[in-house]
C-alpha cells in the first residue's frame, strides 16, 4: 500500500466526503477499513481518516467484529460527510451507541 492506512489525506474544502468501506485483506479474505475520504476518489486512494474496521468473515465464536470510532464518526457526520449504503446499514445497527454512547438494547433484552 502506498499510503498509511490510518489516513493523512489532504482535506479539500467544498468537496463531498464519504464514510465508506475500504477493502483490505487479500484474495478470498476480505477485511474492511471504515474510512472517511473524498467521494470522487477511487477506493484505494489516500483516506482522510480511518474511523474503524469491519471483519466481514465470522470468527470461531460465529461473530463478525466491528470497531467504530464513534466520536470521530459523529464529528464527520456533523461536518456533513455522506455514508455509503453498507456503512449506513452498519451505523444504523449501532445507532444508539452512536447517538447516546450506550446501548439500551441490552437492558431491554434483560426484560424478555
Amino acid at each position: 500500500m502506498p499510503f498509511p492506512a490510518s489516513g493523512g489525506g489532504a482535506y479539500m474544502r467544498f468537496t463531498p466526503k464519504i464514510i465508506r468501506f475500504q477493502r483490505h485483506g487479500c484474495t478470498n479474505r476480505p477485511f474492511f477499513h471504515i474510512v472517511v475520504m473524498e467521494k470522487r476518489f477511487e477506493q484505494h486512494s489516500q483516506v482522510i481518516e480511518q474511523l474503524g474496521t469491519y471483519d466481514h468473515l465470522t470468527n470461531q465464536h460465529n461473530e463478525r467484529l466491528v470497531a467504530l470510532n464513534f466520536e470521530r464518526i459523529r464529528y464527520w457526520l456533523g461536518r456533513g460527510a455522506l455514508t455509503s449504503d453498507p456503512v449506513a446499514e452498519l451505523l444504523g445497527k449501532a445507532l444508539e451507541m452512536l447517538l447516546f454512547g450506550a446501548l439500551s438494547v441490552i437492558s431491554k433484552q434483560d426484560k424478555f
Partner: peptide, 11 residues
C-alpha cells in the same frame, strides 16, 4: 433528524 442533531452538535 440524526444528521441535523450531529451537525448542531458539531456547531
Amino acid at each position: 433528524a440524526v444528521r441535523k442533531y450531529l451537525k448542531q452538535e458539531f456547531i
